[in-house]
């Protein structure tokens, strides 16, 4: 389980996230919904251990990540994958992109050998790479130049890139906000596949319908922390919090 306990984060004097708590179990999809600029991205960065909270703790499987030394925290961080709104693929083939997470987890001697082999044109493609690309329906794009892909394909490769090294938790930041319905559907199917593999998934989205489609649980982030966290049906059908109800019914406009 990955969890935030009373976590706050501020850029300078400006608090972005204040006193937020959330936990995610393996094999469940949690959607974080809320208007733009409410701190969803910062929340994911806190979960990804890429920013340090100014207060509170981030624990992964019971270990307080920021109480660990650098090496231990790296090991913990490497169990989490993150996909951004922009695919931000590397200027390389699709295969090299998806393989990246596997590659950097290998010892340096092996990495150098792999690099030499790749220059000599003698690549062996790890099974995990093919499998991950298969999940997003791009198994035949292995040798394509990543920069030649369409936006939707690039985002699916970006998803495969995070899936390939089999993370315990996967964080998706507005993964489909720039995509057409077909690519959105493919990403959502991939999210379900990840859940079926036992991965805990967090999706930050401003698309409530997407949250309804993919999430087991939903957290509603409005201004200063979650107004409501609960099973998707409860949050959407019978929200306990007044502001949540207004937000979901579209009355609360930011």
């Amino acid at each position: 389980m990955i969890r935030l306990d009373g976590v706050s984060h501020a850029y300078g004097d400006d608090p972005v996230v204040e006193d937020v708590s959330l936990s995610v179990e393996p094999g469940e999809v949690v959607a974080v919904i809320g208007p733009s600029g409410v701190g969803k991205t910062t929340l994911l960065r806190l979960l990804a251990l890429s920013v340090r909270p100014t207060a509170g703790t981030v624990t992964l499987d019971g270990r307080d990540a920021w109480a660990l030394d650098d090496d231990e925290r790296l090991a913990v961080r490497r169990r989490v994958g993150m996909v951004f709104q922009d695919a931000s693929l590397f200027d390389a083939t699709v295969e090299r992109n998806v393989e990246y997470g596997l590659r950097i987890r290998r010892p340096w001697a092996e990495r150098v050998r792999d690099q030499v082999r790749s220059v000599l044109g003698d690549d062996t493609i790890p099974e995990a790479v093919e499998e991950a690309l298969d999940v997003v329906g791009l198994a035949d794009a292995l040798d394509q130049d990543a920069r030649s892909l369409s936006g939707g394909e690039a985002q699916r490769v970006s998803f495969a890139r995070a899936l390939a090294y089999d993370p315990a938790y996967l964080l998706l930041d507005e993964p489909t906000s720039d995509l057409d319905p077909r690519n959105t559907g493919l990403i959502e199917a991939a999210v379900r596949e990840a859940r079926d593999r036992g991965i805990g998934v967090v999706v930050a989205t401003h698309d409530m319908h997407q949250a309804e489609r993919v999430a087991d649980r939903v957290g509603v982030l409005l201004g200063d922390g979650f107004t409501e966290v609960g099973p998707a049906e409860t949050v959407f059908e019978t929200p306990a919090d007044e502001r949540t109800r207004e937000f979901i019914s579209g009355e609360l406009v930011y």
């Binding site: 890429s50 951004f84 997470g101 970006s158």
Partner: peptide
């Protein structure tokens, strides 16, 4: 974003 992605992938 490229550096961020590399970091996010471990």
């Amino acid at each position: 974003a490229v550096g961020d992605a590399a970091r996010a992938l471990g």
